[in-house]
């Protein structure tokens, strides 16, 4: 394109200058967020010498890797659903339950702290609580004669990890859903009730549909949050529980799968899972909020 062509239209000459302003940001995002991700995606479909292949993806379909994905997805769904449920209950208790007003502020502050208290120290906290010599395990065994081990509970298991993840999942839900609950107008409840609706009908037909987009968004976020959690899992279980992030961690460290490009495929699988979770969320959200501007 000739320079005369551009200078003929003065707005076009000014436009590039505007775009220059976000160049640093664009460069940063491209180099340290987009390109690394693209590299993984591309690598998943490449042989070590760079030609196209589906073998890496096919390599994921071994029983042990599939099992790792499956348990990761189960933990993520369970901790996201339970986190949503418990967070909703606590938030609703504080917003509508007639509890003292003074509880609200501390609850939100604490939720801010707890939702950021993840990773290695969180695992230590739960080991000290529900681990073999944890305070709760010991109390139940010595005072009530209940042995969690005998009941099949093990902190290094599906339920152990789920219960631990809830420590940051529930507060995150509280932080997101409390403003949404505040947004429910008193008049909606009253209008429903004066029209003859019971409390349950109000929740089913009015409040819940209005909250649904926020709930779905939180679910997707909590899912991704649990699915990508590496530190808590490693600190809690070492490598005794084979979930995808731990597997990938070990693969990056030392190529435990014996095929460097299988690591790409493993990571690509993680992107696909969180991507699908978000696609489902966007689709459900589009369906549930036709009534929004």
């Amino acid at each position: 394109m000739s320079s005369a062509h551009i200078s003929a239209r003065s707005p076009a000459r000014r436009l590039p200058l505007h775009w220059l302003g976000i160049l640093p940001f664009a460069a940063f995002v491209a180099l340290f967020l987009i390109l690394p991700t693209v590299k993984i995606v591309v690598g998943a479909f490449q042989t070590p010498d760079g030609s196209f292949t589906l073998d890496n993806i096919r390599g994921l379909f071994t029983p042990s890797i599939l099992a790792a994905y499956w348990i990761s997805i189960k933990i993520s769904i369970a901790s996201a659903l339970l986190g949503c449920l418990a967070g909703f209950a606590i938030s609703a208790a504080v917003v509508f339950g007639g509890l003292p007003k003074g509880i609200r502020g501390p609850l939100l502050t604490f939720s801010g702290v707890a939702s950021n208290f993840a990773g290695v120290p969180l695992a230590f906290a739960f080991l000290a609580t529900l681990g073999p010599v944890g305070i709760v395990s010991v109390f139940l065994r010595s005072e009530l004669g209940i042995d969690l081990r005998v009941l099949g509970f093990n902190i290094l298991s599906f339920w152990g990890l789920t219960v631990t993840y809830l420590f940051f999942q529930i507060p995150l839900m509280i932080l997101i859903i409390t403003p949404a609950l505040d947004g429910l107008k008193r008049e909606w409840r009253e209008a429903a009730s004066i029209l003859g609706a019971t409390g349950f009908q109000y929740w089913r037909m009015v409040a819940f549909p209005i909250l649904l987009p926020s709930i779905l968004g939180t679910l997707a976020l909590l899912f991704a949050n649990a699915f990508g959690a590496v530190a808590t899992a490693i600190a809690l279980t070492g490598s005794s529980l084979s979930i995808v992030p731990i597997l990938l961690f070990a693969q990056i460290r030392g190529d435990v799968l014996g095929n460097p490009h299988l690591g790409y495929a493993l990571a690509f699988g993680m992107i696909v899972v969180t991507g699908v979770a978000n696609a489902i969320y966007i689709w459900l959200r589009a369906r549930s909020e036709r009534w929004l501007k």
Binding site: E187, E190, A191, I194, L195, V206, I210, W291
Partner: peptide, 13 residues
């Protein structure tokens, strides 16, 4: 029957 100052229509319907 009641009509409120701020309409109070159910926004999702």
């Amino acid at each position: 029957g009641m009509v409120f100052q701020a309409y109070a229509l159910f926004p999702n319907m």
